[in-house]
């Protein structure tokens, strides 16, 4: 090792980074070179001076900072929860006041206006047309050999008039 390498080896030995092989080489050099040994002692004294000064000169850290740090570590959970609650509150508020705004909106005009008559769904209700057909069927049954309700009445609708007319002519 040259002188510079030996000086670096002194620092690395103090920091615990010197290999065993290099430690042996350094020890041999220290035994042979008193100046190097003096330098090693000076390095250790000068490195110890820093903490010595800090012990006396560095003011203590207030306890308050420690509490702030620990509180900051808890903050992320509360932050997300508070944001979630804020969003939920906004949604509820929005849904609550939305009808108030929609009430003041003008009603939309229907596109198509139509009057639709209700379709008769109950065949039992009075229907003049059906009553008339029943009368005709009755008349036909009087003057023909067909009974009331015979399907031939429906099948031969076009002949109803002929049957009735021929019957009336007969009368």
């Amino acid at each position: 090792m040259n002188h510079r390498e030996l000086e670096n080896a002194l620092l690395l030995r103090d920091s615990g980074e010197l290999s065993e092989t290099d430690c042996l080489l350094l020890e041999e050099a220290l035994e042979k070179d008193p100046a190097l040994a003096a330098l090693a002692e000076e390095n250790q004294i000068l490195q110890a001076a820093g903490p010595l000064s800090s012990t006396l000169m560095v003011p203590p850290l207030p306890e308050l900072n420690r509490e702030r740090i620990l509180h900051a570590a808890e903050k992320p959970k509360n932050k997300y929860l508070s944001r979630l609650l804020a969003v939920a509150a906004l949604l509820v508020l929005g849904l609550g006041i939305l009808p108030h705004f929609t009430r003041h909106l003008p009603p939309s005009q229907p596109l198509i206006t139509a009057q639709i008559d209700p379709i008769r769904s109950d065949l039992q209700t009075e229907d003049p047309l059906l009553d008339r057909l029943d009368d005709l069927e009755y008349e036909l049954s009087l003057w023909s050999n067909l009974e009331m309700g015979d399907p031939a009445f429906l099948e031969n609708e076009s002949d109803w008039a002929k049957i009735l007319l021929s019957a009336e002519d007969t009368i």
Partner: peptide
């Protein structure tokens, strides 16, 4: 370097 070495005993690496 001096402070890291002497105050925290950090290795040079």
């Amino acid at each position: 370097v001096y402070l890291m070495r002497t105050e925290a005993d950090l290795p040079f690496k």
